[in-house]
């Protein structure tokens, strides 16, 4: 089984937000299967947060990516009472709406604040790594839409994959939280 993850290159990301728009467009279509009125709000599943750092003249404008880390030791899965939050064999963290009661415990359990309440569905929604696309052999929408190829997706266990090579020199996001995140960043 592959072990999917992301490396986000903050040194090449221009903060254009194409990934955010692509995520919303792609996944709104998926949610429509659950409810006609459902949609993914902009910034819901993934967001870009622009932070200015440093002092003139050495300043940086960094676009941080805010999304699900698909943790190997995922607190959202541990606390979910009904097993609605679960990890697939590929290590993707998903929500099963047949079982979700909307108690929001997963949201308070996530130290990355990666989940939000989807008002139409009444339950938590989050990044799925575009699981429906993975099943068709396609990349997640955010990765395909990035004009500077700053979002690299693939199998972290395949030593020949680009993502595995980059991850060796990248930083796992918030590693001190101890949940074994699978999103890495290359610092700016």
């Amino acid at each position: 089984m592959p072990r999917y993850g992301f490396v986000i290159n903050l040194s090449t990301c221009i903060g254009c937000g194409a990934c955010v728009a692509a995520c919303t467009e792609e996944n709104t279509q998926v949610l429509k299967e659950l409810s006609d009125e459902a949609s993914v709000p902009l910034g819901g599943r993934r967001d870009i947060r622009v932070v200015e750092d440093g002092k003139f003249p050495s300043v940086l404008r960094i676009s941080y990516h805010h999304t699900c880390m698909h943790c190997e030791d995922a607190p959202c899965v541990s606390v979910c009472p009904t097993g609605a939050s679960y990890r697939t064999d590929e290590g993707t963290v998903l929500v099963d709406y047949e079982l979700c009661i909307g108690c929001k415990y997963c949201i308070t359990a996530c130290p990355y604040n990666a989940r939000y309440v989807n008002e139409t569905l009444g339950g938590p929604d989050k990044c799925t790594m575009c699981y429906h696309r993975l099943k068709q052999g396609l990349l997640p929408a955010c990765a395909t839409s990035c004009p500077t190829d700053s979002i690299v997706f693939g199998d972290l266990d395949d030593p020949n994959s680009e993502v595995a090579k980059l991850a060796k020199h990248a930083i796992p996001v918030g590693a001190s939280l101890g949940t074994k995140p699978k999103v890495y960043v290359i610092p700016p």
């Binding site: 009472p81 097993g83 009661i101 909307g102």
Partner: peptide, 27 residues
């Protein structure tokens, strides 16, 4: 307070009921 009260019976019938969750124990 539940967002999806239509599924509340999953607390008793879910095949994947998580007995380690304080939400389950508490229920």
């Amino acid at each position: 307070d539940l967002g999806r009260p239509q599924n509340v019976m999953a607390m008793f019938t879910s095949p994947k009921l998580n007995l380690h969750s304080w939400m389950t124990i508490g229920t």
